[in-house]
Amino acid sequence: MEYNPTIVSFLCNWCSYTGADLAGTSRMKYASNIRVIRVMCSGRIDPTFVLKAFTEGADGVLLCGCHPGDCHYHEGNYKCLRRFHLLQKYLDQMGVDKKRIRLEWISASEGKEFAELANEFSETIKKLGKSNIKEEMKVEDKKSPESAVHRPARMGLQSTVES
């Protein structure tokens, strides 16, 4: 059977999340492996969130914001874009295929575009197959508990659920 990946998606509240809702109200069908997390602005998408998603076992991470110039907060999407490029570079150096992370602009009226993007990205990730980041993290954890996590609290790589 074909591998069914898990994709975590961060959508900004004003454009992309509304666009995704529009895909719903328009009953457009798309891949069911997208799990959406809502943030107020794409500028809020901390690289840590992306890394966290990968270490928790996500096979791909999709980031969406307003089109350039349309940001509800004027320029949050530009900040996101800059971080995205750096993050891609970082992931590449860490041996993660940079195709596993993608940033696209989806406006509040682009329900169709969101559905198409979801399907397309899902196909890309299916082709790349399962991400082994989570497994490797475990191995490294065993080898040296300190070295794997440089900024434990900040990177959020430890469980946040207080037990």
Binding site: I37, M40, E56, G156, S159, T160, V161
Partner: peptide
């Protein structure tokens, strides 16, 4: 940011995964 703290979002990722 209140209501969108790192902790809240990171734990949401954990829950989802």
């Amino acid at each position: 940011t209140r209501h969108f703290t790192d902790k809240q979002i990171l734990s949401q990722i954990e829950g989802i995964m």
